[in-house]
Design a protein around this nucleic acid. Structure first.
Length: 881
RNA sequence: GCCCGCCUGGCGGAAUGGUAGACGCAGCGGACUUAAAAUCCGCAGUCCUAUGGGCGUGCCGGUUCGAGUCCGGCGGCGGGCACCA
């Protein structure tokens, strides 16, 4: 919300002049090279690699970036102080569709749009005072980056990890490109939101499925990842155990003699009443060729696409082909073959056997088309004669019935084993493990991406571009007036000679999915200027990333692709680790109230700075005074206009204030609400801290006094306790708690200031100086500029800066309390407290507890059955009536 | 439908099984000021018959000397996956 300039807290003379101090300290760190590290360090320090998910250069940084990079910066600065050599790089995820859209809408070339955005966002990020090694910066749209990506692609191709094959793909008609399975959400494109269609295309795939078992198994070892991210990946990879088996057609059709089926319930084979294939299945195609009815049904399913099926989720439809298959075990029995819209070509074999009694979908289908329902698993305690299945399939455990040699076996487990053994003996099936994970289709029919570095030759087929001819550079001279695939329409770019036979050939005109760009950038950061993708010594030193920080929205896509890429790079000799991110932290979103013009809340969305809030909570439009409806608190988004510009906040309150508020509000993994009141509170604290410093005499520390009076001892206890508790909070990502502990220290310093006018001031000035200097060092990961400013005031002429100082060590003996308050309970209820020196003898504590007047009153005349004693904590008297 | 997480004052939240509500925001009272801002001091879960006591961490039950915390069930909210055979 808006605060007119005259009312800003800054109107009162600020003590801490952030507008001058922040750029000055940023320049100082830069001049000293404080945050620069070598590709292969020789300093012998333990390494620590801190990385935040790099930004897409959309034009301006937003509060999500501020939160992300503040969290990372706290970790980076803290670890550096703890003696680590910290690598903390920044770059740009710079390819992608928004640049093309900008080109089409505003006539700016994607390259110019992107590089201008990068320049602007770099300036904004630098104002935050992040401890970044800017010498490592790169953008993925730079040929000096993507040339190495092209090399990796060729290495993958040679290793059999990349391949071209025809397949049914997800087609986004709005973005005009193919999408990976991971990029289709609820049947819609992840970017465009358009209904995704199915298309049969020849496509580049990366064989992520080769690593499905390892990607799954290794999740257990990622003990510094959030449990729910591991779970989401676990489900996405989707391992299932079952059987693959072949059903022989009663009459072969169009050269097809049998149908392969995947099932997780081979034990229910005797309950079969039909076989169903996907509309894209070859048998369906064959049936369609011979029957107009089947053809119509198949065409129908295709036009509906995957999306309609989701909407009409209960509408199961099928078409009886008239074909029949033989049951593998029942002599002479045959079953109808249907084409069904609920069978997916992409999963298993694209064909199922239907067992209605024990599968809900099959049951729905059977009831609709009047197919048989034969129970073959009897629930425990049910009667075999009376048990029937009505409209609810039974999928629990039980005993097999009506199933020949399987009768009496326990289902599913024992019976599954028996069926698989028999299928294998007869050579018509086997036990298999099936995966939900699909191979990663990486070809995109877009301009602004890294070109796929291969050449198609009529004689030689797919020919890799020779490594010496990399990069295959994206041509600048394209027109966004052209309708279609720009690289294909370019008059000259694709026409080349075949590197193999020298005859005329054509470049591949696909570009790589931008998720490829972000699947290895963390490795490139280790040696960003090398003329090979990664320098072995550098990645051996720095990888894996010790702490990766970003949004939960990447729980599957980016993180799974990166895990695959590390394995593929390991196989092709580029990397020595299979897991790229040893630690992962997923932050919550930044939210804000939303505002709509008009009392009814049906007017236009308004930006926070367009409204004024009155003390009673009502809001009004700043210009016109019209009433404004205050809406829900939700994720900041341009469409709802509930965004707050980080640049404006930094200009008004300083980077340290923005960083402090973002850390203090709540635990970092939860969504936080950005409020003006919160920022102002954080700002006040920066000024309060600075005032405390101004009351301390600057200059050299001097010898510690031999004696400290009571206020001095109290303050020193608070100081050393703060070192302990802040350290503990930082270690566990409890940054909001660390902030609270620093507030406590600042309150203690305030109390000590009052004591300076008292009688007992021995050692107090020394203790206050110690406290303020420690406070500066403890806030330094969060508010680095203010920390430097305070430290420099206390130590005029000193050459040390806080960013290069080691983390303070607490004196544990000073942190201990002189008296501890021990709670005294009677029958588990608090009835009083006693203050005792820590470590007092049990007998003394029990005596003092029993003598506490209120406790004594309750114990009077009662028999004490039990005395519970927890040292320095609690006493509990259990009494009998 | 399956899987997972969360639920504590007006608000954000704190709390190795050991004094629930630290710390902050908002609020209230006071000091300073012609006034305001800023700053400083103080109050603050709730109810009662108030130097004491009852109730209180979504609800019900259990384990324990002692439960926000552990266990079982229920409810609400949020998230992930989903014709996955």
């Amino acid at each position: 919300m808006s605060v007119p300039p005259a009312e800003t807290p800054a109107a009162a003379e600020p003590r801490f002049d952030f507008a001058r101090a922040e750029p000055r300290w940023q320049a100082e760190w830069d001049a000293r090279g404080t945050f620069r590290v070598q590709d292969v360090p020789t300093d012998g320090k333990p390494k620590y690699y801190v990385l935040e998910m790099f930004p897409y250069p959309s034009g301006k940084i937003h509060m999500g970036h501020v939160r992300n990079y503040t969290l990372g910066d706290v970790v980076a600065r803290y670890k550096r102080a703890r003696g680590h050599s910290v690598m903390h790089p920044m770059g740009w995820d710079a390819f992608g569709l928004p640049a093309e859209n900008a080109a089409r809408e505003r006539g700016i070339h994607p390259a110019k749009w992107t590089w201008d955005n990068i320049a602007n966002m770099r300036t904004e990020l630098k104002r935050m005072g992040l401890s970044l090694d800017w010498d490592r910066e790169f953008a993925t749209c730079d040929p000096s980056y993507y040339r190495h990506q092209q090399k990796l692609f060729l290495d993958f191709l040679e290793a059999g990890l990349a391949e071209r094959r025809e397949s049914w793909v997800n087609w986004d008609p709005v973005d005009g490109t193919v999408l990976a399975n991971e990029q289709v959400i609820d049947g819609k494109g992840w970017r465009s939101g358009a209904q995704v269609e199915k298309k049969l295309l020849s496509q580049w795939f990366l064989r992520i499925t080769d690593y499905a078992p390892d990607l799954l198994a290794a999740l257990d070892g990622l003990d510094r990842w959030p449990e729910r991210v591991r779970l989401m990946q676990h489900n996405w990879i989707g391992r299932s155990e079952g059987a693959r088996m072949s059903f022989e057609l009663a009459t072969p059709t169009a050269g097809i003699g049998s149908v392969e089926v995947y099932t997780t319930r081979p034990d229910t084979l005797y309950g079969m009443s039909f076989l169903a294939v996907a509309p894209e299945h070859p048998l369906a195609t064959a049936a369609a060729a011979g029957s107009p009815g089947a053809a119509e049904f198949v065409a129908d399913c295709r036009s509906m696409g995957t999306s309609e099926a989701v909407i009409a989720t209960l509408e199961k439809r099928g078409y009886d082909t008239g074909l029949r298959v033989k049951h593998p075990f029942i002599e002479g029995a045959t079953f109808p073959v249907w084409i069904a819209n609920f069978v997916l070509m992409e999963y298993g074999t694209g064909a199922i056997f239907g067992c209605p009694a024990h599968d809900q979908r099959d049951l729905d289908f059977a009831r609709k088309y009047d197919l048989g329902v034969l129970p073959v698993v009897l629930p425990l305690g049910e009667d075999a004669v009376r048990f029937t299945v009505a409209d609810k399939a039974f999928d629990g455990t039980g005993i097999i019935i009506n199933s020949g040699f399987l009768d009496g076996l326990e289902a599913p487990e024992a019976a599954k084993g028996a069926v698989i053994t028999e299928l294998e003996r007869r050579g018509i099936g086997k036990g298999v493990v099936n995966w939900r994970l699909r191979d990663w289709g990486v070809g995109r029919q877009r301009y602004w991406g890294a070109p796929v570095p291969v050449i198609h030759c009529a004689a030689c087929g797919v020919v890799p571009v020779p490594a010496t001819e990399l990069p295959v550079v994206l041509p600048d001279d394209v027109s966004f007036e052209w309708n279609g695939k720009l690289l294909d329409l370019h008059p000259t770019w694709k026409h080349v000679k075949c590197p193999c036979c020298g005859k005329a050939a054509e470049r591949d005109t696909d570009t790589l999915d931008t998720f490829v760009d972000s699947s290895w950038y963390f490795a490139r950061f280790c040696s960003p200027h090398a003329d090979i993708p990664v320098v072995q010594a550098a990645v051996k030193h720095w990888m894996p990333v010790d702490q990766y920080i970003g949004g939960i929205e990447h729980a599957i896509l980016h993180l799974l692709y990166s895990r695959f890429f590390s394995r593929a790079m390991q196989k092709t000799g580029h990397l020595n680790v299979s897991e790229p991110f040893a630690g992962l932290f997923t932050q919550g979103m930044v939210t804000h109230e939303s505002y709509k013009l008009g009392g009814g809340g049906n007017g236009a969305w308004l930006y926070p700075e367009e409204i004024e809030k009155r003390p009673d909570g009502t809001a009004f439009h700043l210009g016109t005074g019209e009433p404004v409806t205050v809406g829900r608190v939700e994720a900041m988004s341009k469409s709802k206009r509930n965004t707050v510009d980080p640049g404006a906040i930094i200009s008004r309150y300083g980077a340290d204030t923005a960083r402090w508020f973002i850390l203090s509000d709540n635990p970092p993994e939860r969504d936080m609400e950005w409020t003006e009141a919160g920022v102002v509170g954080a700002y006040r604290f920066t000024q309060r801290l600075f005032r405390l410093v101004e009351n301390i005499a600057p200059g050299p520390y001097g010898e510690a006094p031999a004696q400290f009076g009571t206020p001095a001892r109290t303050l020193r206890r608070a100081t050393h306790r703060a070192i302990l508790t802040v350290t503990e909070a930082l270690e566990s990502f409890a940054f909001n708690v660390a902030v609270a502990r620093i507030y406590e220290l600042s309150n203690a310093i305030g109390d000590a200031e009052k004591a300076t006018t008292g009688a007992d001031t021995e050692g107090l000035d020394w203790a206050r100086r110690e406290a303020v200097e420690m406070a500066a060092r403890l806030i330094s990961p969060a508010m680095p500029h203010l920390a430097e400013e305070i430290f420099a005031r206390l130590n005029p002429g000193a050459s040390d800066i806080v960013a290069e100082l080691p983390w303070p060590e607490a004196d544990v003996s000073l942190a201990a309390a002189e008296l501890v308050t021990i709670a005294v309970q009677v029958l588990g209820k608090l009835r009083g407290t006693v203050a005792m020196p820590p470590g007092s003898a049990e007998a003394d504590v029990l005596r003092a507890a029993a003598d506490e007047p209120n406790v004594a009153r309750l114990l009077d005349g009662k028999r004490i059955v039990k005395r519970v004693y927890v040292p320095n904590r609690i006493v509990n008297f259990v009494i009998a009536e």
